[in-house]
């Protein structure tokens, strides 16, 4: 029993790590640029496909992750230039329509390019197999996801909280115009943040492929969970996103254990209740409300 619980906790943690990385990418674009990107799940799935193909290619396995990050960041950079940039000042509904439309196009393109079957990556030898906890087997790769996911989140926190670049981003969240009066080109800043966001989506997809596989439709599944993570956490709050990634990860994992037939119903009802109780999310942002 002890072992079973420990395994489920680790399952929840690995799922939370993926939600955290995906959610942070979405959150930073939403809070800084006030932009709703419903194509974020496409970056995730693209990252998954890149990892599957990279790991099958025989090239050094660990490079799958930086390659997925860079490739999706590049895709993000192109997309930001056209057409997203023109929609920053538009109402959210228009942004939603545009990016949802884009996500449908990307879904079709990916189905055409990568096929419709479920693809699982060939994991490198050193990450295959299981470890035993209280005599229960647990996939080694999921421990890798937990370690890599939370390490990456820590690196992001350091970037935003401890570097001057992060200070510029935090300043632009509170007042973009004043940042401009200090001679800083916030349009370039926004483009860089969007690239980072897209890259994070791709990186979480690359990490997650070994757990969730890659298949058409996964982009939408991941998007909705990332949106929930961001909203439950409180927009623009780093700590809140960490906390809510854990809440959502544990809620979904344990509702699958306890109420397998009603897993989604249980998990999403808990989230609706949470949002009714705390409309600004778990950790309300100190600054502007979006």
């Amino acid at each position: 029993m002890m072992g079973y619980a420990a395994i489920q906790v680790l399952n929840a943690l690995s799922f939370s790590a993926l939600l955290l990385l995906t959610g942070l990418g979405l959150s930073v674009v939403l809070s800084l640029m006030n932009f709703v990107n419903l194509a974020h799940g496409s970056f995730y799935l693209l990252g998954s496909y890149i990892a599957v193909h990279w790991l099958a290619s025989g090239a050094p396995w660990w490079m799958a992750f930086p390659v997925a990050f860079l490739a999706t960041a590049l895709a993000g950079a192109l997309l930001e230039r056209f057409p997203l940039r023109a929609f920053y000042a538009r109402p959210h509904l228009m942004q939603v329509l545009l990016t949802y439309g884009l996500s449908v196009i990307f879904a079709d393109l990916m189905r055409w390019g990568f096929g419709a079957q479920i693809l699982s990556p060939e994991l490198p030898e050193m990450l295959q197999g299981v470890v035993f906890l209280f005599d229960m087997p647990f996939p080694l790769y999921r421990l890798f996801i937990i370690g890599a996911g939370f390490a990456m989140a820590l690196a992001l926190w350091l970037l935003f909280d401890r570097t001057m670049w992060g200070a510029v981003v935090r300043a632009a969240v509170s007042d973009r115009g004043i940042v401009e009066t200090l001679g800083i080109d916030t349009r370039r800043l926004f483009a860089a943040v969007f690239m980072l966001s897209a890259g994070l989506g791709g990186l979480s997809g690359a990490l997650g492929a070994g757990m969730l596989a890659a298949y058409p439709g996964l982009d939408e599944e991941v998007l909705i969970l990332a949106l929930i993570t961001v909203v439950v956490g409180g927009l623009g709050s780093f700590g809140g996103t960490v906390l809510s990634a854990l809440v959502v990860g544990f809620a979904l994992t344990f509702s699958k254990v306890w109420f397998p037939e009603f897993a989604n119903l249980a998990a999403f009802s808990a989230m609706i209740a949470l949002l009714l109780a705390r409309p600004n999310g778990l950790v309300a942002p100190p600054l502007r409300q979006l």
């Binding site: 200070a167 509170s174 004043i178 001679g183 800083i184 100190p286």
Partner: peptide, 30 residues
């Protein structure tokens, strides 16, 4: 701004999530 005009805005326009020295250093970046 780079051409040579600086603003002390109404309401000060400080960045509350930044420290005093970060607020200042922001102006030196570009």
């Amino acid at each position: 701004a780079r051409r040579g005009m600086a603003l002390v805005p109404q309401g000060r326009g400080l960045f509350p999530t930044l420290s005093v020295s970060e607020n200042l250093r922001l102006a030196t970046l570009r």
